[in-house]
Design a protein around this nucleic acid. Sequence first.
DNA 1: CTAATTTAAGACTTTAGAGTCCGTTTATAG
DNA 2: CTATAAACGGACTCTAAAGTCTTAAATTAG
Lengths: 148, 148
Amino acid sequence: MLFTTATGYALRALAAMPEDGSYCLAKDLASRLELPGPYLAKILQGLVQADILESVRGPKGGFRLTRPAHRITVGEVVIALEGPNSMEGCIMGFPSCGGDHPCPLHDAWGAVKAQVATSMTEATIRDLQLMDLRNVKEGKGRPSDGRP
Amino acid sequence: MLFTTATGYALRALAAMPEDGSYCLAKDLASRLELPGPYLAKILQGLVQADILESVRGPKGGFRLTRPAHRITVGEVVIALEGPNSMEGCIMGFPSCGGDHPCPLHDAWGAVKAQVATSMTEATIRDLQLMDLRNVKEGKGRPSDGRP
DNA sequence: CTAATTTAAGACTTTAGAGTCCGTTTATAG
DNA sequence: CTATAAACGGACTCTAAAGTCTTAAATTAG
């Protein structure tokens, strides 16, 4: 994967948040997505500090998006968790690689980075929710939890 | 970087190998490239097992390419050190992401992977040597070691 | 007020990659 | 044959990411 597992977990959790703005629990997200609970909780707390989620403690508490899902981009989440420079540098690690001394993969990699960066700023959590829904409806995603 | 540091070191070392087929020492490569010596030596030993380098022990020994530099691709080195699946999987880590349930970055990432994969199988160690030479000639690369 | 529930915060453990160290083996030079 | 120079192999340490655990703080229900 291009991103860290924490970022992947965060995106999956955001995609699984309820669409109606109600609060949901870290514990529930973790069990639905089959992710390590305490670790996911810590990641969600980081998203609170990044102003992507807001939280309330205690019974009836939980996490929810600070904004409508279509106003939170994937890129914003990546930057919040990995910093703004996560895709910098030569793909092969050549320190001398640059505009005037490109390595053989420099142009291909540069195009790739630009493409991914653009896609990240255009894709929103809403898009992830829609994908997630598709999977659930067709029975390929998470199992329903069996409660009537 | 997309690859591990070991792969980056390997590519830089291969690019710095002498072009005339003479043996060169892990120690010398490490000092020229300013890389950790014992670690580079271990990586080079891995390349011997992958039939990319051959070695002889003892005085006058060292490492050299098993083939002309233009017959060793960057992709071959990457596969030798990271396995054949290093670029598989969803960029965001969505386990359900696939051809019929693409995540919002799936197509962009797929194009990227294809592009990089193609470039990797086309670029050879020879190409890296040429880039390296350019840098040295124009004085941007490694410093000469100062010994008279 | 008390008990229960949930996030918050931070210390702790685990794991894998990065990097070091040491003893062994193989070859060369004298 | 001996000393030296190198690769070889494995065990070891270091570091950061991944993941766990414990305690505190906030909120709700009774």
